[in-house]
Design a protein around this nucleic acid. Structure first.
Lengths: 204, 204, 204, 204
DNA sequence: AATGAATGAGTTTTCATTCAT
DNA sequence: AATGAATGAAAACTCATTCAT
């Protein structure tokens, strides 16, 4: 649908070109934002003419959409990765430090912020992130329910959903914190994070 | 500095004009984002000519800066308001429901998201939000320390800062949640919020 | 409707500007055609920046539409002028020579040809010329009927409409002839025209 | 000259390819006009790659020229066909109804209008249609002279040329009428046509 | 103090054409 | 003979900003 359906006999090359463009876009978007980055800028970064990009994407909006799509998939992948672990809940708790350090790594949090803002006014992007979020929450709920039932704890839908909401809010909030407080103290933040997540995961 | 120093004989009127412009900008920015809103749009909303705006602001960037400034001050004011209460910590905890409902009210969370994104690439805006955040954290720390000392609890700087970081992340993360999950279940979210905030506020 | 409704406090100036643009457009359109003429070309000919044109017209299509409108009105005006005459039919017949000479004057027939072609694919332009044509035929029919009734001749609608169709075809066909045969012999053409028009006007 | 001189070992195939392209072009040109149709569109319709077209034509202009050429030849063929008839003049008169119906058939008149417009600004195309017109007029003149002399009527060049001019104007004007009045009444138009053509053909 | 006419640089996008394969 | 990836120039249009009034 949308932009993958252009006819390119050499699919291999086409895929590579698209990747090239999206990587160039990442760099430009992160530097100047979706609307500040021009097609000329992107094409230069991608090492091809501006016109040629239109052989792979319908337009700038399609690039933004594909880019957002790729980014939300990255988040989904994380959750799915967690599901592989032995005791996913415990694993998540143990991984807090790594997660936090990852989330506030410079260069990591810029694109999410841009995507959030774009989703707040571009319906196409909104639908993309909301759909991905639905999926992520569903996966997360499965994990949470399984983990809690194993421990013999209540797990009605509403309760789980509320806790998931807050846990995700925290991690997404961390991106926001990064831009507000670049010199955040990592250790005490991680400690506080543990304190807050524990009851969300393991309290009745 | 910047935009307040233009010479206007009638300072009263000038201030009013600036307020007019910023209010018009709010409406346009919220609809179209900082970069999607045009000066023409703003000037029409403000009920004055485009040219005239330049008598009060150096340019669009100056409007954005002033607008961001006004918005971050609104957040600071909230904290200061809390400080007036008898037992600020308990008050904050009791107010969770109202705060959450306020944060995800449609039309409330759009501007913050826009500001976060802008701060991530516009150094002037970044400096603004970081400075305001420093101030907010400092005020919050005073409140938190006072509340905890009254209760005879430890309150070294690092611990407090970590917990503040997480608490603020929660609330800012809620704005982000709004765009990801428009049909969030309020009650269970508030319940989970309480569960998470309690230890942050009152645990050793 | 369309392009006249832009708010220009100084209506006088605005009207003059629009006229300037349409005159410049005439020159460019006639030289390069509707699609061959660029906004840059037009703006240069109009003596203003390309961007400024958009303060007076919604876009190139609006210019084309206004231009076509002005041109079809010119044709209507001719018919109306004829109606003023004492015996319009005789006058029309007597004026044949002048009409023919006018129609094939270089620089006169180019725009009609362009308009005809444009109308054949641009529905907006088609509607414009068809509406004008309906009006012109109606006026012409009134004239023709009055003239013939005065002479005691039959004048049922169908007959009149057929003759009008052919008479108009002649005159519009003359524009076409101009591009096919630039060295047309005027005198014999006028004579032939008289021969053909006479029965159309005055036969039973 | 121009486009026929490309060296193609298999001339048969080359000719077929050119025909393929011109037929594809007909469809595209008629839908979008000479300038609205893109080479990509044409190449897709022709079932070959865009690049390959350049092995048969020097460029888009060459396609337009060849296309126009083919179209004007079609008109010439009509006249030549008429010459085969027993009494060509009478035949022409008797065929009026068929000719009219043919001329205003939807899909028939679009290309002529496009060609007329193009000829009015593209000198190469102008030369093409003028040359073809010279030829057509010459043939027509021969027919007309023969028919009239057989009937013992005067037929000096100037008179004949004037009448031919008007007769052709009428038929070409019909194309123009089609776009102005899509709901033209056929029967009365044919009747009027007969009325007008008779004296042109058969009067002194 | 206030206007809005005017500019010009910059935006996205299209397309005829070329050329390595 | 044939492809289609690639280019680059040009198109329509937008908009922050200036300035004469």
């Amino acid at each position: 649908m949308g932009s993958t359906d252009k006819k390119h006999p050499d699919q291999e090359r086409a895929l590579h070109r698209r990747k090239q463009i999206l990587e160039a876009a990442e760099c430009c978007f992160s530097r100047s934002g979706f609307h500040g980055a021009s097609m000329a800028e992107i094409s230069k970064a991608a090492g091809m003419s501006a016109g040629h990009i239109y052989n792979y994407f319908d337009g700038k909006d399609a690039i933004i959409a594909a880019f957002v799509q790729a980014n939300v998939e990255r988040v989904s992948a994380k959750i799915l990765g967690m599901a592989q672990r032995d005791d996913p809940l415990q694993a998540a708790y143990d991984d807090i430090e790594r997660s936090v350090r990852e989330d506030i790594k410079p260069g990591i949090w810029k694109m999410p912020l841009e995507i959030f803002a774009e989703a707040s006014r571009n319906p196409m992007v909104a639908e993309l992130v909301q759909e991905a979020d639905r999926h992520t929450r569903a996966e997360f709920r499965k994990l949470l329910r399984a983990g809690r039932e194993k421990r013999g704890m209540a797990s009605d839908d509403a309760t789980l959903d509320g806790r998931i909401e807050i846990m995700v809010a925290f991690f997404q909030g961390l991106h926001v914190r990064s831009v507000h407080n670049p010199s955040m103290n990592m250790d005490s933040t991680v400690a506080a994070m543990r304190l807050a997540l524990w009851p969300l995961l393991f309290n009745e």
